[in-house]
Design a protein around this nucleic acid. Sequence first.
DNA 1: GCTATCGTTCCGTCATGTGGAACGTTGTTC
DNA 2: GAACAACGTTCCACATGACGGAACGATAGC
Lengths: 260, 260
Amino acid sequence: MSTKGNEPMSAEPVSTTEGVVPRTFAVLEALTRSPEPMRLSALTLRLGLQKSTVHRILAGLIGLDYVQQNAETGCYSATLKLWELGANVITEHPIKRAASGFLQELQRVTGETVSLVIRAGDDVLYLDKMISPRPIRFTTRIGSRVPAPLTAGGKAILAHAPDAQAVLERTAAGIGGKRRLDVAALTVELQEVRERGYAMASYQPGVVGFAAPIMARGPEAAAAISVSAPAERVDEKGRQEIIEHLLSTCASMAEQVGRL
Amino acid sequence: MSTKGNEPMSAEPVSTTEGVVPRTFAVLEALTRSPEPMRLSALTLRLGLQKSTVHRILAGLIGLDYVQQNAETGCYSATLKLWELGANVITEHPIKRAASGFLQELQRVTGETVSLVIRAGDDVLYLDKMISPRPIRFTTRIGSRVPAPLTAGGKAILAHAPDAQAVLERTAAGIGGKRRLDVAALTVELQEVRERGYAMASYQPGVVGFAAPIMARGPEAAAAISVSAPAERVDEKGRQEIIEHLLSTCASMAEQVGRL
DNA sequence: GCTATCGTTCCGTCATGTGGAACGTTGTTC
DNA sequence: GAACAACGTTCCACATGACGGAACGATAGC
C-alpha cells in the first residue's frame, strides 16, 4: 500500500481494512499514548492510514469533544471528557474502592510510594498510586501496564496464579534482548514468594519494590499492593519495617474484601 | 441509588440520524454512567435506538475489548481498557500532577476529605480526591461533574471568572424545582469569596465544604481545592484551622504552578 | 401450557465512510 | 525574493458497511 520505500517501525498495521469505529479508537489510543499532542502527519504515519481518513475521524472526535486541536500548533490531543468516561469505570471497581484507605495508611506509615496493581493478561495494571512526599522520579503511571514478571506486584500475583508458568514463558518470549528473563530462576522465586508471603523486584534501576498479594475469596490473588523506594534509602531495618506494614495491610484488606 | 435510571426523560434523542461513531460513544457514556451493568433493552430505551443497532455497536466494542458481557446475566459493562485510555489523559494534566503532593499533605493535616476540581463549562469536574480515614459517605466521585454554583470549589473558581454571572443564570435556569438557585444572593456571595479568599457550601446535606482557588498565572482560577467534612465534626476552631491550612496550601501550589 | 419480553440474527436498501488527488498554507533553503 | 517541500484541508466518485424492520430463539412469568 505504501508508495514510499521505508516506513519506520511505525505501524500497528490496523490489520485488515476496518471500519470507522476501530480506527477511531486507534486514533484515541495513539493520542493518549503520546505524552505530547500529535500532529496529523504523525498520526497517519503511526496508524498507517490515509491523511483524509485520519482527518475525518479527528473532526468527528472534536465534534464529540473527545479531542481538541491546539489553535496555534494544530496539534491534536485527547480531552478530559475521555478521562471522565474512563473514570466512572474505575470508581465502580470493588478492589480499587476497598484499597483506597489502606493505601493511604500504608503510604503514611512507610513514607514511601505505594501502588495497587491487578493482573491484566500477562501484565500488571496500575490501578492506583500514592506517591511519597520525598522527591522521587518514578515513571510508572496509573493506568499503565508492565509485564507481570518484571515487577514485585506482578510476582506477588503470579505466585498464586495457576498459569504462572505460561505467563513466564510468554513474557520471556516477548521481551527483547536487553532484558532477558530467566524462567527457571523465576519459577523458584515464585515458590519462595508463595512461602514467605511477599515479593521483591527492581524493575526500575535504583528502585526496590516490595509487594504482597491481596488474598480474598479463592486461592488466587485479587490484586497486589507494592511499596517502592530508592534503593539507597532502604537498609535492612527499613526493609523489615516495610514488609511488616505491607503484610499487615494486605491481610486487613483481604479480610475486608472477603466480607463484602 | 433507589431510582437510578430516570426512565421518563429517558431520551437524549441523539438528535439527527447520526453515524456509528457518535452512537458508539453514546453507548459508552450510557454504560459508564450506570452504576451497574446494563441490559440491551435498557440501553436501547435510554438511547432511543434500534435493538439491532445497539447490539451491533456493542458487538464491535466487545471485539475491541472496551465492553464486556456478563456470561450469565447478559448484561453489558465497560472494561478497564476504557479506563486505561482516559487515565493517560489525566496523568499528563499539569494541574493534577502538581496538586498530588499538596492534596496529600492537606488531607494529612486536616484529617478530612480533600478534592481537586477544575471548571468544565458551567460545572466543576472532580479531578482528584483523597478521602478521610474516618468513616464518611460522600458520593461525589472522581470524574463526576456538579453545577459549579452548588459547590464550594465551584464558587471559589467562579469568584474569579469574568462570566460568573452568566453561569449563575444558566445554572439557575437549568436546575429543577427542588433546589432553587438565588442568583442575587450568590452574586453577593461571590464578591465575599473574592475578598476573603475562600468559599463555603453545603452541597450535600450534613456536609460542609470549604474551598480556595489556585490563582496561578493570570486573573482566573486554574482550579480549586476543597475540604469536606461532616457538619457536626467542624466547630468554630476546626473551621479556622481548615481554612488556614487550605489557604496556605493553595498559595504554595499556585506559586509552584506559576513557576512551571 | 401459552404469552410477553428480551437477545440475537438476517437481509435489502441506501447512507456514509473511503482513499486518491487537487488545493491552500506555512515555513525552509538557496 | 523565488522555488520548494511538508503539512493540513477539502473535494469527489465509488462501493463498503451501517441502517432498521422483521423474523427467529431463548427465557421467564402467569
